[in-house]
Every structure is written in structure tokens, then in C-alpha cells.
Amino acid sequence: MDQVIDEVNQFLVPLTGTKITKSMINSYVKQGLVERPEKKRYSKQHLAEILVVSLMKPILSLDTIKKAIKIAVKMDPVNIAYDQFIRAFNEELGKTQTHQLKAVDYQHMAIRSLLYKLLVEDLVNQNL
């Protein structure tokens, strides 16, 4: 478990400033967001699941994340679905401008975030 936490936090902390904890991972497993480890051993898939949940948690409810993951893995094998998420995440991160922003830029980003959040929640609920 300590290795899982260290590995996930290596990517999570620089992006979000937050750390994953043992109790958070246990909660994700208990709620069905992350598959149960076999004999307390975590795989690459577990790491990917924990990372995706941790990245999306500040924006979406755990219920919405669970539904979205279910939709994604219904459309593609798990490894492909997670690879697509990471590619999309990195692509959007590369497009994000953070220098010389004006107040109106922050406003647009906040509004866009809200609209995308509402849209994702609506689409996820329509697909299940």
C-alpha cells in the first residue's frame, strides 16, 4: 500500500497539491471505484484507477466518476480507456496557458469549468 501511495502521489501532488492516503484508497475500493486488490497486491490498473479518481474527485462526485468509468470501460478495454484518459489529460494540460492572464481569462476558465462539469454529469447520467 505504501508503494501505491508513493507512486500515485508522485504524479498527483505536482498537479493538485493534494496527497492520496491509505484511507482514501480503501474508501475507493469499498465504493467500487477501484477494483479490490488480489491478496493485497495492486496492479498497474489499480494505480491508473486511483489516479483517475483522485484527479477527477475535486470536480465530480464519486458517484459520477464511478458511472463515467463504467461507461469508458464498456466502450474500450480498461487499459485503452485509461491510456485515452491520460493522453487527453496531457493534451489539455499542454494547451493550458498560465502566463500573463487577465481577470477575464480566469472568469472564462471558471465558467468553462462549470459548464463542462454540468455537461459531463448530464451525459454520464443519460448513458446509464
Rank of each mutant, 00 (worst) to 15 (best):
F11W: 14
S113K: 13
P77L: 14
L118R: 12
I86D: 01
Q107V: 14
V8T: 07
Q3T: 15
M75P: 02
K22N: 15
K19G: 06
K117V: 08
K117W: 07
I59Q: 04
P77G: 01
E121L: 02
E35H: 03
P77E: 09
Y28F: 07
K22C: 01
I50V: 12
Y116D: 05
P37C: 00
T18I: 14
R41A: 11
N90F: 09
V34F: 02
L47G: 10
L55D: 08
P77A: 02
Q126R: 14
I111S: 13
L101V: 07
T96M: 14
P58E: 12
D6I: 02
V53N: 07
D83L: 06
V8Q: 01
K30S: 10
S61D: 13
Q45G: 15
Q100R: 12
L123Q: 09
Q45A: 12
H99Q: 07
Q126K: 15
G94L: 05
T64R: 01
M109Y: 12
A68W: 00
N26T: 03
L128C: 08
N90W: 13
Q100M: 14
M75R: 08
F89R: 04
V8S: 11
K66N: 04
K30C: 08
K70L: 05
K74Y: 03
I86L: 06
A81D: 05
L114G: 04
V124L: 03
M109H: 12
L55M: 09
E92N: 15
N127F: 09
E7H: 14
N90A: 12
A103N: 13
E38D: 11
T64W: 04
K19V: 15
K95Q: 11
H99R: 10
P14E: 13
L62E: 10
I69A: 03
M56T: 03
E35F: 04
L119C: 08
N90Q: 15
F89T: 02
S27I: 05
K22I: 15
L15Q: 08
Q3V: 06
M56V: 00
E35R: 06
K22Y: 05
K95E: 08
G17R: 10
K19S: 13
K102W: 06
S61H: 00
Q45Y: 13
A110S: 14
Q107H: 12
E38Q: 07
N127C: 05
D6P: 00
A88N: 13
Q97H: 03
D105P: 11
K57Q: 13
I80G: 04
F89L: 07
R36M: 09
A68H: 06
S54M: 11
I5R: 03
I69D: 04
M75W: 06
K102C: 08
L101H: 09
S27D: 07
K70F: 01
E91P: 10
N127W: 09
E92I: 09
Q31E: 00
Q45V: 13
I5G: 05
A68K: 01
K22V: 12
H46T: 01
T21H: 06
R112Q: 12
I5T: 01
K39C: 07
L60N: 07
Q97D: 11
